[in-house]
Design a protein around this nucleic acid. Structure first.
Lengths: 210, 210
DNA sequence: GTCTATACACTGATAGAC
DNA sequence: GTCTATCAGTGTATAGAC
């Protein structure tokens, strides 16, 4: 509810409608996949007529592309904690916390990303080859520096990163399986805390972080 | 090529055609998702007319269900090494090896499973609630026994299992991303060996297996 | 900027000759 | 058991009134 009744400008209407559509699209794409999602269903979830979606996003693929781009930017923000850290225990621990929190708050986004990559990244292959590739190389350099300084074991930096992605995103991508194995209920606050602690404990001890 | 020219029986024709169709379907479902896959494309990959698919499998969903069931049985076989082990280092180490080998040889199957779970398991929810749930409880008991015997740290058995699934299946489900970050090439034998060693090394040390 | 009606393409599934 | 032709339903996208 807005505090003033001032009529929205065209620009504000567009921003708000795009936000509503993108939120609905992320949810529907995550639950049904690109092929299974229909513009009709996205429109229903967004509470708009189907034709309006085509007014704001020319094609289904253009809408999907925007959804994936949004997710990617969320991933990258979580990386900041990595560099600002003084050592592996702090840096990798904070990164795990940040990624787990994204899996908890943003599970649909993680699923859309996973689905896109599984289908050979038809839409975001360029991101994989440029931004993600550079990000990975940069983080590998940080890890290798920590190893050279004797602050952690001489593990393979690349496979450590894959393990961090795999374990944290698993809680989003396989949330339905995890809920089913939890008696059909979502994880409680305490269970999420236990999950974070387990992941951090095993990995930090496993790499000899100190 | 068969060694004898003996004409195939009806049963043998059916078995062979079902095998060809299921192999093609697994590949297509993995690459395009259930919604994105078409019976026409599966028929083309199998080298059969589309109508024949409907002769052997009444509906697209029935074909898909068989694909998912096949994958699930492969998962379960890998679990045998877990129980036959004398301790956590051997048992969990062998389980990681087995799951990594499946990710390498059977990546399409893993992707179909991941996609099915991400979409809230519309077809195999009953398996999650029965077979997988029982399997998980059984393995958790084994882990807790090892903990009680002082052969590993007192970690959360459930989250350890999730970490094992996540890390090993990541190499199948995200194989395209991993290949892209490897310069567009599949992992070599040596790189696969390094991946296995990294995963085993970090996890076994991380849980204090001894 | 909104929304109804509709064009056009494609998909799953089936009928029926061989 | 194989395969061509085809139907009915659905999906994306657009035209055009408001």
């Amino acid at each position: 509810m807005t505090s003033h009744a001032r009529p929205l400008s065209r620009k504000e209407i567009r921003q708000e409608n795009e936000r509503v559509i993108l939120e609905a699209a992320e949810k529907v794409f995550a639950e049904a996949g690109f092929g299974g999602a229909t513009m009709q269903l996205i429109a229903d979830v967004a509470g708009l007529p189907k034709a309006n979606l085509h007014y704001y996003f020319p094609t289904k693929e253009a809408l999907y592309r925007r959804v994936v781009q949004n997710i990617f930017s969320v991933w990258l923000e979580a990386a900041d904690v990595f560099d600002q850290a003084s050592g592996p225990a702090e840096g990798i621990g904070a990164y795990i916390d940040a990624k787990m929190e994204i899996s908890r708050r943003h599970p649909a986004g993680s699923k859309v990303w996973a689905s896109e990559v599984m289908h050979r990244a038809p839409v975001i292959q360029d991101y994989l080859e440029t931004t993600l590739s550079e990000w990975t190389e940069g983080r590998m350099r940080v890890i290798r520096r920590w190893i050279d300084e004797g602050r952690m074991d001489a593990i393979d930096a690349r496979h450590l990163l894959y393990m961090l992605w795999a374990t944290t995103q698993h809680y989003a991508d396989f949330s339905h399986q995890i809920e089913t194995l939890n008696g059909g209920r979502p994880l409680s606050d305490a269970q999420w805390a236990a999950a974070k602690e387990s992941v951090k404990s095993i990995i930090l001890k496993g790499i000899g972080a100190r």
